[in-house]
Design a protein around this nucleic acid. Structure first.
Lengths: 162, 162
DNA sequence: GCTTGACCTTGCCATGGTGGGAAGGCCCAG
DNA sequence: CTGGGCCTTCCCACCATGGCAAGGTCAAGC
């Protein structure tokens, strides 16, 4: 009994080790919602279907979903994951390509981290200088309003208040 | 001709120190697009209009826009900026409220920074262990695929490569 | 006055990743 | 056969921002 080219029934497909979307979601930790989404945007190929239109996933499909999950958890954007998936399936890829992609992503992460750390430093500084009691006096609001009574506090060049 | 309660002409409004949206954008560094958006979502009150429907901004309005700009640059989400604006305009606010808000935001920043740093550490580690040459061998893809040859990194079930 | 170009108006679409929900069909156990 | 749990598609929302299009307005130069 060779491969059926037609759409199977659900029970039949299940007995052949295929999973419906809920199972695939459970196994891969990617929500059914997101699995459909990834299919929609072309990150994964269109799933096979049962006669009734239910999506079917092989273990290899689930494996791919786990790959995506892990890559997302490392912060890779979906577009880059698409490239990673291609490289993954290409046995003759050069590891240099993968490494370059990872390093580029690491640099982007580093840039965003640096931005947020700058915000954090400023906030910590402002909060430290705010007595935080019942008085209305507040260096934080003074800073936000551009009304800075004393001393430079923002790291970095300060432009005139325009 | 005492104070007009009706919509003025543009030139007239200008001569009274009001700004059209482009000027306000230039003065506040908030794009005209975003000024309209902030009005739309209620972050700022509806602007006055000329007879032709052009928005008009006073210096105080521009000052408020600069406040928003600065708060955004510190990463405050728009909702919190709404609260900050209220506190700013309330002369009897307690600085403790402002400080609490700033500190809460700082904590959220810290949490996101920590997440991203964890990603970055993993990426750096993987990239360091990837020779990055023409060979297909790649610890980065091995990790993403859950196939980790050496060093216990994640023990997950392994699916076949289809 | 009329043309021209810069500006303004509203409105819709897109980003990116995720969740929520509605309306309707399918499957299996009782 | 019925009920409940799954599946399907489609739309909406978040958050902040930009872009584009079609049409009105204003000011300057001829």
């Amino acid at each position: 009994m060779p491969g059926k080219l037609q759409r199977p029934e659900l029970g039949e497909a299940r007995s052949q080790g295929l999973h419906n979307i809920g199972e695939a979601a459970g196994l891969s930790q990617v929500s059914a919602k997101m699995i459909r989404h990834y299919e929609h945007i072309g990150l994964i190929p269109e799933a096979a279907r049962t006669m009734a239109g239910y999506r079917l996933y092989s273990d290899a499909d689930v494996h791919r979903l786990r790959f995506i999950k892990r890559a997302r958890s490392l912060g890779f954007p979906v577009k880059q994951i698409g490239v990673l998936l291609q490289l993954w399936s290409d046995r003759s890829r050069a590891s240099a390509e993968v490494k370059a992609l990872a390093q580029q992503h690491a640099r982007e992460l580093a840039a965003r981290i640096a931005e947020m750390q700058a915000m954090q430093r400023t906030l910590d500084d402002l909060a430290r200088r705010c007595h935080g009691d019942n008085r209305p006096d507040c260096p934080i609001l003074d800073d936000l309003s551009g009304d800075v009574p004393d001393g430079p506090r923002r790291a970095g060049p300060r432009g005139p208040l325009r």
